[in-house]
Structure formats: structure tokens, C-alpha cells
């Protein structure tokens, strides 16, 4: 063999053969590319971005400008008191138009963008009015679906909201609708537990050696002083998995939740929405 003739001092590492070489090549490639792998994930996460939503200014966000200042203020007060007593966040929103979405999808996406309700409890409700489309929607958070059923939501719209809106009385329509929703939800402390949602277990058919690798990593991570320093794909995926407020990954900053939209200091009540989510429950009507 040619290697035998070389001086011992110069170890020809480029002549490595077998599994060690493969391990070396694989390891260096993987560690190089790991740094880049965060990029496509971030790109994929932002690809699903929808239309631009208004910023919440309180429980009532009257973007279409259809409410009188007095009605808006008194409704805002009621809603603040309602959250204080029940923990439930009810947002009343008017927009000029929901294009290019339909009003229901707009309600769903606005709900998740704002994160109405508390994270984990999903105890939020959105009453949305689209002025141009002449539609009104009630979107119910997962946690309140058993109480504020679709049938009840439709009834509220039929009885309190739509007649007033047809008369052109937006103040009465939205205020009466919000109060009817509050009456239904009254006495529901923080909303029911999530009966509807069942998280399935993690993948069970995992090969034993993969677990061994995982265990090894864990030990090594401790030995090397900190998992974070490796810049592994694990933490990157948490950042990339942008499913607003639904999965509740620990340490994931709720994209919109957590009081980021807190009103100006002295304002009583509204402290920002809390990362709740909904799944299309509720009802809608044209008027």
C-alpha cells in the first residue's frame, strides 16, 4: 500500500476510508447547511400571509366609521367590564370591505391575526360588520363553541342585529348584538374547556436507533454546554411554525398576543388580545 511508504509525521487524512470518512463528510455538510436551513422555513411561513388587517384600537374598532362616538364609548365600556367579570374577550369590528376574501374567511383570519381571547382557553368572540358587502358575522373562539352555538349566533343576528342594520341603525344593531352575545356567555367562567380539540399523540412508530441518537444529542448538548449554541434546526422550526396561537409551543412568542396592542396607559380595560383562536364557528347574515 502506498500509505505505508509515507513518513509517519504527515498523517494523510485525505486518504481516510470507510465509515469514518462518510461520517466526516456527512457531519461537515450537515453542520454547514444547518445554518442555511432556517431561511426556507422563514420564507414558507411568510408565504401564507393574507390581506392587511386593521390594528385593534380597543374592544371596538370602527374602521368603517359607522358608529357614533357616544355609542362606541359606551360599548367599549361594557365590553371592558364584561372581560373583567367573565374573562371573555368580545371584539366588535367594522370594516369598509373584506375584499378579496369573503366575510367569513375575513372574520376567521382577523380573529387569528389578532388572537382574540386567551391563549389556551380560546375564549374570544368577534362581531364583524362589512359595510360594502353588507354582511355581519359572528366568529366564535373554540372554547366558547359549546355555549355560543351556531344556532344561537344566528338567532342573535336575526333577532337583534339584522333588523336594526336594515333600518340603517348601526349603533343599535352592533350594541344590541354585542349585549345579546354577552347575555348568552354570562356565567361561563372563562369559557368551557376545549372539548372539541384533541391533540393527537406524537408519531409513535419511531425507530429505536433514532431515539438513541436523540438521547446521545441530549447528553452531548449538556456536555458541550447548551443546546442553543449548536444553532440546530429544532429551535428554528419553532420560529417557523407560525400557526397563530393554536399549538401553544412553549417559548413561542404569540405573533399578536400578549398585550402587544395594549392601549395607551390610563385606558381602563383593554389590555390587548391574548392569542386565542377560532375555527369558523358562528353565523353570518346579509343585511
Amino acid at each position: 500500500m502506498a500509505t505505508r511508504k509515507r513518513p509517519r509525521g504527515v498523517w494523510p487524512c485525505w486518504r481516510l476510508r470507510g465509515p469514518l470518512l462518510y461520517a466526516l463528510v456527512l457531519a461537515s455538510l450537515v453542520s454547514l447547511v444547518a445554518l442555511l436551513s432556517a431561511v426556507p422555513e422563514a420564507a414558507a411561513a411568510s408565504a401564507g400571509a393574507g390581506p392587511v388587517f386593521p390594528q385593534p384600537v380597543g374592544y371596538v374598532t370602527d374602521q368603517a366609521g359607522v358608529l357614533s362616538p357616544a355609542a362606541r364609548a359606551s360599548l367599549e365600556e361594557d365590553l371592558a367590564r364584561f372581560e373583567k367579570s367573565s374573562g371573555i374577550q368580545l371584539a366588535v369590528v367594522t370594516v369598509k370591505s373584506v375584499a378579496p376574501l369573503d366575510s367569513k374567511m375575513y372574520a376567521v383570519q382577523l380573529f387569528s391575526a389578532w388572537g382574540i381571547g386567551k391563549k389556551g382557553k380560546d375564549n374570544g368572540v368577534l362581531l364583524l360588520l362589512a359595510q360594502q358587502e353588507r354582511r355581519v358575522e359572528i366568529e366564535v373562539g373554540y372554547g366558547l363553541e359549546p355555549v355560543l352555538t351556531d344556532g344561537r349566533a344566528g338567532e342573535i343576528l336575526d333577532r337583534y342585529v339584522v333588523p336594526a342594520l336594515r333600518r340603517g341603525d348601526y349603533d343599535a344593531g352592533l350594541a344590541e348584538g354585542a349585549r345579546a352575545i354577552m347575555r348568552v356567555l354570562q356565567g361561563q367562567p372563562g369559557g368551557a374547556p376545549e372539548g372539541q380539540r384533541q391533540a393527537s399523540g406524537s408519531g409513535s412508530g419511531v425507530a429505536g436507533w433514532a431515539l438513541l441518537v436523540l438521547f446521545l444529542c441530549f447528553v452531548l448538548a449538556i456536555a458541550l454546554g447548551g443546546w442553543g449554541s449548536s444553532g440546530g434546526g429544532g429551535s428554528g422550526s419553532l420560529r417557523g411554525g407560525r400557526r397563530p396561537g393554536r399549538t401553544g409551543w412553549p417559548g413561542m412568542p404569540g405573533p399578536w398576543g400578549g398585550g402587544r396592542f395594549g392601549g395607551p396607559g390610563g385606558k381602563d380595560g383593554f389590555g390587548g388580545f391574548g392569542g386565542g383562536s377560532s375555527g369558523g364557528g358562528g353565523a353570518g347574515r346579509g343585511f
Partner: peptide, 10 residues
């Protein structure tokens, strides 16, 4: 390499 593999596994 093993560390990054662990991250990817997660």
C-alpha cells in the same frame, strides 16, 4: 453533525 441531526429530528 449529531447535534444538528437531533435538531432536525425534533
Amino acid at each position: 453533525g449529531v447535534l444538528t441531526l437531533g435538531g432536525q429530528y425534533n
